[in-house]
């Protein structure tokens, strides 16, 4: 039942010498929506995890001198890698969307091409915070419903309305455990990013 990656056991897998450019996409959503599963399904390396210590106020703690343990908390992000061509590597960062981790978000959002928001139809409200964050950071996104057997199936227009999606924001459904389905969700996102980029201002 533990889908958390264990960093310590993984041997480093180096990038091919020809790779020159690295890009990143964020996989975001609330707790237990399937982020770690999604990253693990697509990654060519065993997913890695880093743990950042933050103050409760959300500042990253790089220097613990004088910071009592009680006021710090740990936020984990896991990430995976896909070498897409001889020159290009894509990193996927799975991260919870909590606005109190402001600095971490700033770091993650900087230079990211866009984000895929995973949602669970039985807990749509829990996706609001992360979607607000993406909008605040001006990060374009697509939404993927991660299908849990126990979750109610709603028509797309009801989900769009509940999440208050813009008409152009793609809404797809996926199974984070399935390679093809997860790849298709990412393709939908990148296709959307291309469309946004080609639109006249």
């Amino acid at each position: 039942m533990d889908s958390a990656p264990a960093s310590e056991a993984a041997e480093p897998v180096y990038l091919p010498d020809t790779v020159r450019t690295a890009v990143k996409l964020l996989i975001v959503g609330h707790f237990a929506v399937g982020k770690t599963t999604f990253v693990g399904t697509l990654s060519e390396i065993r997913p890695l995890r880093t743990e950042e210590r933050m103050t409760q106020a959300g500042a990253i703690v790089d220097d613990l001198a004088g910071v009592p343990d009680k006021t710090t908390t740990t936020v984990a992000m896991d990430f995976g890698r896909l070498t897409l061509s001889e020159q290009l590597v894509l990193y996927l960062f799975g991260t919870p969307g909590q606005s109190r981790f402001e600095r971490l978000w700033h770091d993650l959002a900087r230079g990211a091409l866009g984000a895929l928001v995973l949602v669970d139809t039985s807990r749509l409200r829990q996706s609001f915070e992360v979607m607000d964050l993406l909008e605040q950071h001006g990060l374009p996104y697509a939404v993927a419903v991660n299908r849990f057997e126990t979750a109610p199936a709603f028509p797309d227009d009801e989900i769009r309305e509940a999440l208050d999606l813009l008409p152009g924001t793609p809404l797809v459904s996926c199974d984070a455990r399935d390679h093809e389905s997860s790849t298709r969700a990412l393709i939908t996102l990148v296709d959307h990013l291309l469309t946004l980029d080609q639109e006249p201002e």
Binding site: T21, V23, L82, L84, S85, Q87, L88, L90, L113, E180, T183, R184, L186, I187, V190, D191, L193, L194, D197
Partner: peptide, 14 residues
């Protein structure tokens, strides 16, 4: 160009 390369790379994985 990066987005197009990412898209091509992902499609090639299907």
């Amino acid at each position: 160009q990066l987005l197009q390369e990412v898209l091509d790379g992902l499609r090639a994985r299907l």
